[in-house]
Design a protein around this nucleic acid. Structure first.
Lengths: 234, 234
DNA sequence: GTATTAATATGATTTATATCATAACTTAAT
DNA sequence: ATTAAGTTATGATATAAATCATATTAATAC
């Protein structure tokens, strides 16, 4: 590894090469490495804005990015979180459309940039990469369908319980059973699609019901099955 | 055209060849034609069920299919409608996942079947086809993000107005300005994500406000701009 | 054409949740 | 360390929309 000063971040991207980039040839591998521009991003910085044209994709080597869309009153609707190993921006790059979401750093991150041209060339020349990427898009489509149905049909209580379980699944619990992602109540509300106060009240209820414990913004999940039951998760 | 008895339906698929299949070679074109199985489906019949494994994709040569997901109380959440020229089922085929939606015929239809193997082979061997399909998936992803944000943030009134405009855009108005798709109030409710009675009431209001006219189930849109304003569409 | 079923319409009531208001606590900035 | 800004918490009130109930109309089945 030539990138000795940021070796840890590039190692992380190499790990990602075992997933979406796992079928690249060594030459293609180098092609990305050559173009790769691994940069640190501070909490709060914006990777790309909704409505802008994106010049390339980003591979996340560390940190957490929230992907959200802004609605009519300027309220955020968080669509998903991207973490170590995920790619963001591929939708706009491949479709040639403007970004339909904004990507903002919620935990100091390190991202590797892949120019759009390179990405598209890879897609076109490596059938396995294109298949992997297609499968990723299809998986995301399936998740979106579920998200739509849940927002439309589940109560806010059910939704919040479900979100906590999803956060556990995506970011895992540490040794003390705390979620390893820290969100404001407003951010949780922006995932659930409800008012901040409603989230605060429900978290308080979940705490009373011994489903979770609250330590400042840190959330300890104490009864996973209880939460699954509340969230109607099967 | 050798399919003389169902020539009109195959003509329609040929027209579709000008879009998602527009970059197939003549050989690949024939490959699909050979495998193609163009069948009539009566209103009410189910093309594929949520939870099942799909053996191939369907290209719609005529008619209308509703694509929906069933929620926890057995309620439908309609995700989209597919019409002449659209493909359904590609998500599951390419991702290898079970169908996450159900496809049901709401107007007598004619569908051409493309076996999954064939479809995947086409994806792998024709870079232009794979690119077109990828762009279709990315477009759908973008639409899903908007759908999620709208359901979460817009009022039912706004949503219904917006849905009417979307139906107009997708299915167009006939010479008398009637929507060329006929849905029950329940189905409209299942798109908006609300109760049937709420849709009935709002349609009645829209009628009073001279935004639409109601003739049985047929809806005439009389004030497109008025509806856009109500729906907060820019 | 008739009977049955499904859909539509309307009114009343209930419920979930948003909004408003205020105080207390935590985090960020200097 | 102090101050300012942001977040969290709680209570009260308002609102949108769901649910329940019933009657009417339209579509479907035979």
């Amino acid at each position: 590894m030539k990138h000795s000063p940021s070796m840890s971040s590039c190692d992380s991207c190499s790990n990602k090469f075992e997933t979406i980039f796992k079928h690249l040839t060594q030459e293609e591998h180098d092609m990305i490495s050559l173009d790769k521009n691994c940069e640190p991003y501070k909490k709060g910085s914006v990777i790309y804005h909704e409505g802008n044209r994106i010049s390339g994709c980003y591979c996340i080597s560390s940190g957490i990015i929230k992907i959200y869309k802004t609605g009519i009153d300027g309220k955020e609707q968080i669509i998903t979180f991207a973490k170590n190993g995920d790619i963001i921006g591929f939708r706009s790059v491949l479709s040639g459309e403007l970004a339909c979401t904004t990507a903002k750093v919620i935990e100091d991150s390190s991202l590797c940039f892949i120019p759009g041209d390179t990405f598209i060339q890879l897609f076109k020349q490596n059938r396995e990469f294109s298949m992997d990427l297609m499968q990723l898009a299809c998986k995301e489509l399936g998740e979106a369908n579920a998200y739509i149905t849940d927002i439309a049909q589940k109560t806010v209580r059910e939704r919040l319980a479900e979100i906590l379980i999803l956060l556990k699944d995506n970011f895992h619990l540490d040794n003390e059973q705390f979620l390893q992602i820290t969100l404001t109540r407003e951010e949780l509300a922006n995932i659930v699609g409800t008012a901040t106060e409603s989230v605060i009240r429900l978290l308080s209820e979940f705490k009373s019901d011994k489903l979770i414990e609250l330590h400042g913004r840190r959330i300890k999940i104490t009864d996973i099955n209880g939460l699954k039951k509340v969230g109607n998760i099967f």
